[in-house]
Design a protein around this nucleic acid. Structure first.
Length: 424
RNA sequence: GGAGAAGUGGCCGAGAGGCUGAAGGCGCUCGCCUGCUAAGCGAGUGUAGGAGUGAAUGCUCCUAUCGAGGGUUCGAAUCCCUCCUUCUCCGCCA
């Protein structure tokens, strides 16, 4: 959420920034400004009357103490009370409308986010050289099916399309990746957290997924809860309504959870294998940091992501996402795209967003220190390992001519003793 | 799922329709004092929104806030309703 004062004081700056995202800034902004003006106008009227009522209440109490019947005063105040109620109803209406509008406005893009839409994202650099195959590389699904490691048919029978069973050595590979990621991040000061995956609406609104991405979310209507699409949601909500001690900043967490996504609107896209499924697991890092530190924090988190891919030996490229491709809460976003030999292109395996104070304002996460406060923190989130896609990248990059898959050296300590090849 | 109890400031804890933004204590900040430390004395110490004012870190005033939201009343921390959370007992259960 944006600061209404910023919108009020610098509407043109906000308008320009929103245009960069391709948002229909014009109408929304004008409506917002009008609602804000109307809200303050009504508020002044209500507060004037409340002030009068408070003064009269004191006087009534005083008169009663002195044994004087305050009947006339009470009668007059009854009318004031009715008027207050009337105005309060109007005020509430305006405030609700204002809030609703405000919730829909996305974050302002960072000046360093490139102009344009999805296709205008800028490649920052490459790492690693895609392997030259002496044979025709297979894709992850063929490799997996040959050894019954992925079962899409039965997944579909049980749950529908885009659901899969992962079996055998891939299960070990997944948990090896989790161990690898958790230990690496813990060593860097990130506190491991297992999070609730069903969350209240507040958490969804607070992180900016509601109302914009509602259609992507599985909702458990009976309980009013939502299945999270990423542990970013419960991690961000961890300090909802709190004022944290400035001395504890930055607060670093590494979460692990299953992620659920409806993939509405993705019909026909990436239908093969487990690249785009409704349910996958992910290790995610999250940071609450001081507002003036989020830029360097963002780079720090990306460096961790790059380190992970490098240690796994997966060639990738780093991309600075254009303003038009940012999620609602992000001001700036980096993606890392790993090379997939079978697709012969780079595909997104991690993402890292600086949400500045956008989520913090919605979640009311603030900090306070000796010098001052409370002030809103900045929040950042980044993938450490998206299990499904990383497994795909490993399988395709580490495949052998015999159709087996080597285990990357970095993961061997976390695999069953002696297991160096998957499928056998 | 059934039966009860409770939610007050950073913390503890009083208040049971008006004189309570909220006693008292602890903590914290500043000052004084004590050759260090401890103790002592004095002052201050929540958050949010708004109006006014200033070149400005600001200052002045108003409003709201006693888990959340409604209601009763001239007036609600205090009475009523709904919800949330916590605790106890019973049942069920990984």
């Amino acid at each position: 959420m944006l600061d209404i004062k910023l919108i009020r004081n610098e509407p043109d700056r906000v308008r320009e920034a929103l245009r960069r995202r391709g948002a229909q800034a014009e109408a929304a902004l004008d409506k917002l400004l009008e609602l804000d003006r109307s809200r303050r106008e009504t508020l002044v009227a209500v507060e004037k009357l409340r002030s009068r009522r408070n003064a009269a209440s004191e006087e009534i109490a005083r008169l009663k103490r002195d044994g004087i019947d305050p009947k006339d005063k009470i009668e007059a105040m009854r009318r004031v009370g009715d008027e207050i109620k009337r105005l309060e109803a109007g005020l509430k209406e305006v405030e609700t409308a204002l809030q609703e509008e405000l919730l829909q406005v996305p974050n302002l893009p960072d000046p360093a986010a490139p102009d344009g839409g999805e296709d205008d994202s800028v490649v920052l650099h490459h790492w690693g050289i895609p392997r030259k195959f002496t044979f025709e590389p297979e894709d992850h699904l063929d490799l997996a099916v040959a050894h019954d490691l992925i079962d899409m048919e039965r997944g579909a029978r049980t749950s529908g399309s885009r659901f899969a069973y992962l079996k055998g050595d891939l299960v070990f590979l997944q948990f090896a990746l989790v161990q690898f990621a958790l230990q690496k991040l813990a060593a860097k000061g990130f506190r491991p957290v297992l999070v609730p995956v069903l969350v209240r609406d507040e958490a969804m609104y607070g992180t900016g997924f509601f109302p914009t991405d509602m259609q992507q979310v599985y909702r458990v209507e009976a309980d009013g809860l939502n299945l999270v699409g990423t542990s970013e949601v419960p991690l961000a909500a961890l300090h909802m309504d709190e004022i944290v001690d400035e001395a504890d900043l930055p607060v670093h967490y590494v979460g692990y959870s299953t992620c659920f996504r409806r993939e509405a609107g993705a019909a026909g896209k990436d239908t093969r294998g487990i690249f785009r499924v409704h349910q996958f697991d992910k290790v995610e890092m999250f940071s609450f940091c001081a507002p003036d530190k989020s830029g360097e924090e963002h780079d720090f988190m990306r460096s961790i992501q790059e380190q992970v891919l490098q240690e796994l030996g997966l060639p990738y490229r780093a991309v600075n996402i254009a303003a038009g491709g940012l999620g609602a809460s992000a001001a700036k976003k980096y993606d890392l795209e790993a090379w997939l030999p079978a697709q012969e292109r780079y595909r997104e395996v991690t993402s890292c967003s600086n949400c500045t104070d956008y989520q913090a304002r919605r979640l009311k996460v603030r900090a306070k220190g000796a010098k001052g406060g409370p002030y809103l923190l900045h929040t950042l989130n980044g993938t450490v390992v998206a299990l499904g896609r990383t497994i795909i990248a490993i399988m395709e990059n580490y495949q052998t001519e015999e159709g087996l898959v080597e285990v990357p050296a970095a993961l061997r300590p976390f695999m069953p003793a002696g297991m160096e090849v998957l499928g056998r």
